[in-house]
Simulated assay, not measured.
Amino acid sequence: MSFVAVLVGRWFVTKKGLVTGILTAAGATGQLIFLPMVGYLATVAGWRVPALVVAAGALVMIPLVLAAVRDHPHRLGLEAYGASPENPTPPEPVRTGNAVAVALGTLREAAGTRTFWLLAGGFAICGASTNGLVGTHFVPAAHDHGMPLTTAASLLALVGLFDVVGTIASGWLTDRIDPRYLLVTYYALRGLSLMVLPQLLAPNVEPSMWVFIIFYGLDWIATVPPTVALCQRHFGGRGAMVFGWVFASHQIGAAIAATGAGVIRDINGEYDLAWLIAGGLCLLAAVLSFLIPRRLTPAVPRPVVEVPS
């Protein structure tokens, strides 16, 4: 076990992109587990029962987090994974000041840079094209074409399965390739695949649909590791906090797409226009990613902390 801990620690220290990919891919595991069950419950019991089941699952996590998760390894009498006598675990800082003020101050300073808006714009489109559109509307769109709900939900769960592979691979690539180029590739290929999707939906699952599910799964949230890396590269000590604001744009984009696609479906009676718009936006996100400066912008300074001696 100690060997595994040291190995994981060295990955975290030297291969941050890979570890970010592994942690991000864990979210897809929940999709893989829950979606078929949610689809079945929605079919036999209506939408309220699966909503309550998911809410109950979230509530179960609260005592587990309170009991098991700590902010610093010293609180458990441990050293950080990868720590050594030459590179010991830094002491836990005592943070002062209002957390909300620090977060808003970080946003204000980051928002004064071109890089922040390019990252936020691309990630908003990422949320629109994944959680907002495919995650919310793929099942009803497939059902519009005669596909059973449980079959469509199972296909969406498979997206989560392949996402585990794709996001881990993306983390590995992020440690070796310019993250900007990875984002350009991911967004461009995602956009093209969404433009093709209306021709693939049918009552039965054809081989072309399997190709889409595999590809889209590999690309689903592969954008996270390179986006995190770019936030760290350009904003230094506050990279994590800046990524939090960039991720907020992801959720805003998802909300807009979820609503907009529903409106398009109500007006046109089909989702085709929604897929095409999302595909075009993904191509725009590829352009935004390409425009992220290569030169590092001045890092947003770390918040003032007091470290006990």
Rank of each mutant, 00 (worst) to 15 (best):
V38T: 10
G160F: 01
R95E: 06
G9F: 09
G39S: 02
N268M: 00
A229R: 12
R108E: 02
T29F: 08
R238I: 02
P93A: 04
I292D: 09
A68P: 03
L107T: 04
T115N: 05
G97R: 05
P50S: 12
F12T: 06
D71Y: 00
L296G: 07
G237W: 05
V54F: 02
D175R: 06
A222W: 13
I264A: 13
L173F: 14
A120F: 15
G166D: 06
A99C: 00
T297V: 15
L18A: 06
G135K: 03
F247E: 05
G146L: 03
W275D: 06
A58V: 12
G9R: 04
T223D: 09
A99F: 01
Q251M: 07
R75H: 06
S154V: 04
P85R: 06
F116H: 12
A229L: 10
L76E: 01
K16S: 04
F212A: 00
A141E: 03
V300A: 09
F247I: 04
A55G: 13
L291E: 10
G171H: 05
Y40F: 09
I214H: 01
L35Q: 00
S2Y: 05
S208A: 15
P303Q: 15
G127Y: 08
A274V: 05
C282D: 15
M209I: 03
V300M: 05
W245S: 07
G21T: 04
G171C: 07
T136F: 04
S2K: 08
A111W: 09
G46C: 10
G237Q: 14
L230V: 13
A258R: 07
D266N: 06
P93H: 03
I252T: 14
L200T: 01
A26Q: 08
W172E: 08
T223P: 14
L104W: 11
L182G: 12
R302K: 11
A169V: 12
G57S: 09
M147P: 00
G105I: 01
V102A: 15
Y271P: 02
L161E: 11
Y271Q: 12
W47E: 13
Y186E: 03
I213A: 01
N204W: 02
D219Q: 15
V19G: 01
